Computed example of a mutant assay.
Amino acid sequence: MIIEKSLVLIKPDAVERNIVGKIISIYESNGLTILKMKKIAVSKELAEEHYKEHVGKPFFNDLVSYTTRSDVIAIIFEGTNAISKIRTINGSRDPKTASIGTIRNLFAINGRENSVHASDSKSSAEREIKLWFK
């Protein structure tokens, strides 16, 4: 049993549709605890730093534009095996292939406007938490 921390971003499409509470309740009902949470207007610099592994890819500029178009909710969750648990709860990036009942199956609009982001590893979680919660 490993207690971990992970970053979750509730993305602009979900914030704009006022479904933040519904999404948070799914994480909480799966045994995850909020350690810190904030609503943030994301700067271009923050979005570019967050997605730096995608620099040079054809979708990079669209990803930055999407992330900065309106507010994001940044949350640090803690719980047993939080990183893998959150990724399972989120489902695959594309809502068409996301498992029934996952956040992206329930709420995503498409593969980019997929409502949530979560750290994919312990090292990513550490980097992203430091970036979003300085």
Rank of each mutant, 00 (worst) to 15 (best):
M1T: 05
I2H: 10
I2Q: 15
I3T: 12
I3G: 05
I3F: 13
E4Y: 00
E4G: 00
K5D: 13
K5M: 09
S6P: 03
S6Q: 06
S6D: 04
S6I: 13
V8K: 06
I10R: 02
I10F: 04
I10V: 11
D13S: 04
A14F: 09
E16I: 06
E16D: 12
V20S: 05
K22Y: 12
I24V: 15
S25V: 04
E28I: 02
S29I: 07
S29F: 09
G31K: 02
G31I: 00
L32Y: 02
T33I: 14
L35Q: 13
K38Q: 14
K39A: 11
K39T: 11
I40K: 09
A41R: 15
A41W: 14
K44H: 11
E45N: 11
E45L: 09
L46M: 10
L46P: 02
L46F: 01
L46E: 04
A47D: 06
A47S: 10
E48S: 15
E48C: 13
E48V: 09
E49M: 11
E49N: 12
H50M: 04
H50D: 05
Y51Q: 02
K52Q: 15
E53G: 11
K57W: 01
F59T: 02
F59Y: 11
D62R: 14
L63Y: 10
V64N: 01
Y66F: 15
Y66L: 11
Y66H: 08
T67A: 12
S70Q: 09
S70E: 09
D71V: 04
V72L: 03
E78I: 01
G79N: 01
T80R: 12
A82K: 01
S84R: 08
S84I: 03
K85M: 00
I86H: 10
R87A: 07
R87I: 04
R87V: 08
R87N: 14
R87W: 03
T88F: 12
T88L: 12
T88E: 15
T88I: 12
I89G: 08
N90T: 04
N90F: 02
S92K: 14
R93F: 14
D94N: 14
D94R: 00
P95S: 06
K96E: 00
K96N: 00
T97W: 03
T97Q: 12
S99M: 07
I103E: 08
I103Y: 10
R104Y: 09
A108Y: 10
A108W: 06
A108L: 09
G111I: 02
G111Y: 02
R112A: 05
E113D: 11
N114P: 12
N114S: 08
N114C: 06
N114Y: 07
S115D: 12
H117G: 03
S119A: 01
D120T: 05
D120W: 05
D120L: 07
K122H: 14
K122F: 15
S124L: 01
A125H: 04
A125I: 06
E126P: 10
E128M: 05
E128A: 07
I129C: 04
I129K: 08
I129A: 04
I129P: 10
K130P: 08
L131V: 01
L131I: 03
L131M: 07
W132I: 02
K134I: 13
